[in-house]
Design a protein around this nucleic acid. Structure first.
Length: 104
DNA sequence: AGTAAGGCGGGCA
DNA sequence: GTGCCCGCCTTAC
């Protein structure tokens, strides 16, 4: 399979419940800080729904970003995990952010 | 096999 | 706060 996709999946699986990550962090963890978009692509192409929590990934700005099933769904899932979302944004992202070093 | 377009972002102006 | 450009990956033609 695609190495990139595999790598992204593994990183996503490492994200603990109640925490969040950004595409940038994932890209950095992959060794390409500019591949944030590519990471988003991997999530969108994610062949393992339910196995890879792509909904735990948000933008570096704290915005929810997009979601294959709909942003509302993503927000609902995050809220269900105890993550506070304000107007489609995460005000305390810095407190629950899972950094690339943590993904390492 | 090569080329072109798309996509869930990030950074800068 | 908004708009534009860039760069990376995958997929389709």
């Amino acid at each position: 399979m695609s190495s990139f996709n595999e790598r992204v999946q593994q990183l996503l699986k490492k994200i603990p419940h109640g925490k969040l990550t950004t595409y940038k962090q994932l890209a950095i963890a992959l060794g390409n800080p500019k591949a944030a978009r590519a990471v988003g692509n991997a999530c969108r192409r994610n062949p393992y729904p339910g196995k890879v929590p792509c909904h735990r990934v948000v933008k570096s700005s704290g915005e929810i970003g997009g979601y294959a099933k709909g942003r509302a769904k993503k927000i609902a899932l995050l809220r269900s995990e105890g993550i506070i979302i304000k107007k489609g944004k995460v005000p305390n992202l810095n407190e629950i952010l899972f950094t690339a070093k943590q993904l390492r």
